[in-house]
Amino acid sequence: MAAERQVIVVTGASSGFGRLTAVALARDGHAVAAGMRRTADRNAPAVAALHRLAEEEDLALSAVELDVQSQESADLAVGTVLDRYGRLDAVVHNAGHMVLGPAEAFTAEDLAAVYDVNVLGAQRVNRAALPHLRGQGSGLLVWVGSSSTRGGHPPFLAPYFAAKAAMDALAESYAAELIRFGIETSIVVPGAFTSGTNHFANAGGPSDTAREEVYEEPYGELRAGLTDRLNRLIPPDARAESVADEIVRIVGLPAGRRPFRSHVDPSKDGSEVVSIVADRIRAEFYRRVGIEDLLSSTASL
């Protein structure tokens, strides 16, 4: 049980890591607003299920309409949470969208759409939430990243990996710019969990299908077996819930003790070692330029 209840917004909480995180945080005693779009139609069943669970287990858990592709929606969602609970303590940036296909077959507009969800979506939510967090002089941003930003890049996932890399860079810059307002940053880096979420099942594709077909003859067999190959990297006992568990752990830590980056990668491919070394180099840089207080948000794992 959480030592102190916090009010938390989780984006992209209709399914997958988002829903698992929202439920886990509520079960730990926090008040959670599970952000999702289209709560009145497409996601109405998810909203109903969430509210039933909250009633059955007496949880402070409820859905809030939040489309990260709309600044108006983000502003309204944060306003709703503030009206509902009177405060806001943390935001979990989880909303994202995966696409699969040859990089060449994605138009510039296709890439922009992926970037819009995975990067600009977090920016919109930040612009809605940060004035309140800055005003109270405390807060926490948790960014759900991807191990691709610190490890290898399997083919046919380029637009998604590019967007997650951009989100990671945005999170790092925000960390330095927000720490003096008392707002901490933690980047949680899941590995390639191929079950327990709808990430792969709901993946999109390129709009230029003619160019996509060009890749079928030389790469068709490889593409067809891509998910199976990723599955073989994951131990059979891997649980998507472990990502939610780590977010709960981070939220529950005292301010100044939260890790800057935390890997939840059951494949143990070594990318977390690269990340730890990079974080230490960055910490030394901040020390040299005099940003001492940032070091409190870059604690080792």
Rank of each mutant, 00 (worst) to 15 (best):
H153C: 07
S146N: 06
P154N: 09
S147G: 05
R150V: 07
T149Y: 06
R150P: 07
L120T: 14
P131Y: 02
T149W: 06
P131N: 08
V125A: 05
L140R: 08
G121K: 05
P154V: 06
Q123Y: 04
V142W: 02
H132C: 05
V142R: 02
G152V: 14
V144R: 01
L133R: 01
A122Y: 01
P155K: 14
S147A: 09
N126R: 03
G152Q: 09
Q136L: 04
G139D: 00
G151Q: 10
L133N: 01
R124H: 09
W143L: 13
G139Q: 00
P155L: 06
L133Q: 03
L120D: 13
A128T: 03
G152C: 07
L133P: 00
A122G: 05
G139E: 00
F156R: 11
S146Y: 01
L140K: 07
S147I: 05
L120C: 13
A128K: 02
R134S: 10
H132P: 09
G121A: 09
P155G: 12
S138N: 15
L120Y: 12
N126W: 06
G145M: 08
A128N: 03
L141K: 04
A128M: 10
G121C: 06
G151H: 08
L140S: 13
N126L: 10
G139S: 09
G151A: 13
S148I: 06
N126Y: 05
G137D: 15
G121Q: 01
R150M: 08
Q123M: 05
H132L: 13
G121P: 07
P155C: 10
A129P: 02
N126C: 14
A128E: 04
G145E: 09
G139T: 00
L140W: 08
L141E: 14
L140G: 15
S147V: 08
S146E: 01
R134P: 11
L120A: 14
R150D: 06
L141G: 14
G151F: 04
W143G: 11
N126M: 13
R124W: 03
S146L: 00
V144S: 05
L133G: 01
H132D: 05
A122F: 00
G135F: 10
T149V: 15
G137F: 09
F156I: 03
L130P: 00
R127L: 12
A129T: 03
S147L: 11
R124L: 07
R134D: 08
S138M: 15
G152A: 13
H132E: 11
H153A: 10
G139A: 07
G145P: 08
A129S: 10
L141S: 13
V125W: 02
Q136R: 13
P154R: 07
L141W: 03
L141C: 15
G145D: 12
L120R: 14
R150G: 13
L130E: 06
A128G: 03
V125D: 00
V142T: 13
G121L: 04
V144H: 02
